[in-house]
Design a protein around this nucleic acid. Sequence first.
DNA 1: TATAAATTTAAAAAATTCTTTAAAAACTGA
DNA 2: TCAGTTTTTAAAGAATTTTTTAAATTTATA
Lengths: 226, 226
Amino acid sequence: MKILLVEDEKKLASFIQQGLQEQSYLVEVSHDGVDADDKALKNDFDLIIIDLMLPKKSGFALCKSVRAYNPGVLILILTALESTEDKIQAFESGADDYLTKPFDFRELLLRVRALFRRKATQGNGDSKLQISNLELDPAGKTVKRDGQRIELTAKEFGLLEYLLMNRNRVVSRADILENVWETNFDPGSNTVEVYINFLRRKIDKKFSPKLIHTVVGMGYVLREGE
Amino acid sequence: MKILLVEDEKKLASFIQQGLQEQSYLVEVSHDGVDADDKALKNDFDLIIIDLMLPKKSGFALCKSVRAYNPGVLILILTALESTEDKIQAFESGADDYLTKPFDFRELLLRVRALFRRKATQGNGDSKLQISNLELDPAGKTVKRDGQRIELTAKEFGLLEYLLMNRNRVVSRADILENVWETNFDPGSNTVEVYINFLRRKIDKKFSPKLIHTVVGMGYVLREGE
DNA sequence: TATAAATTTAAAAAATTCTTTAAAAACTGA
DNA sequence: TCAGTTTTTAAAGAATTTTTTAAATTTATA
């Protein structure tokens, strides 16, 4: 994932850059609006993080211009201003999200992840996920097994989607909690187990082959073979 | 996993030490920056937890110096200071993560685990491992011999994966304990031997050539030749 | 070859992990 | 607010895995 960070405060920029790189994102930094516009045009970034207060070209202007020639890119606005006015203007300029300084780095990370996730489920609007006779449509939020529509709640859907994105891969409870529940910890609760059970009841019980398998001591996996 | 804890407040240090040891991490404690620097140079720690306020040598200085001669080690900074300035400085000094006091011990544990996980997944492509007609898929946690699926438990799988990563290399019982059981000591038990035999029964007994070999007095090795 | 050390094997005991159910808590929408 | 739904917590029992124990076997060496 390639990210362009546009921030003129150099210390903050390098702090954010480092943090993102540790999460193995590819990060380029630009310190003013004109340079950023240039870089954005030449490279294919997935996400552009823009500080509103920029030299040479305002964040809003940059946002608009980038959006004009690249409708697909994600844009996250950073700013010291909390005003509703500014939020509105940000979104009107084409931003996808908005974060007020000062912020906790973890929060930035959360937003970034959420944006990518959103894009991922959006981008393949027509590419449904499937395995065996189970089909999931991320756009329409529907699930079918043997052509038969199955109703899932939001969490159930999220879990199934995650398992499906990782089919044939064993995912641990921690992986699931992190990606579906978006929390890293769980002091001894069994939410995941319970939801696996919910899913099994709905998508596996009356059908064959069984798709959800538990791998004791490791996690769960969605696959056709035993 | 070996951890060095650098914290001058002795009560807090021993509290953290105890908590980490209960999670079976190996923990050494140092009460000042100079001693810590010394220890870090002589031993091969996986993680160093550093309190910023230290006698003799500041946390930042320690962090930098440790990072200079050991780029691979993980560093977690503890501090009473909440300022963004300090966070930035911490990351600039080469820290991997940052935690503000007072903290819930479980949160510390979380961070520690996350750091280890991050480190582990860095070099870890999910490419399959194989030797002769034995194949192991780290992502799907499956093992095949002659194309035939073999069921292994978590520990058996971990052991085979380790042997496979070290194929043609004799690994001692101590190596195995450290890397598969993640403990360095074993008060006169034969767990490793027992597990080697579980594995032999499952992956070698009905197949040829034999792959697991005993090197008396040294350990075990996975290889094709005798 | 005899003896001690190291390794293998099998069985049981202990510990952990999973499933399932039920009920409490937290949301949601009328 | 209230009823219905969804999500989370809790707990018991089942299933499986891990560890221990101890005896049998093999290997090294004096």
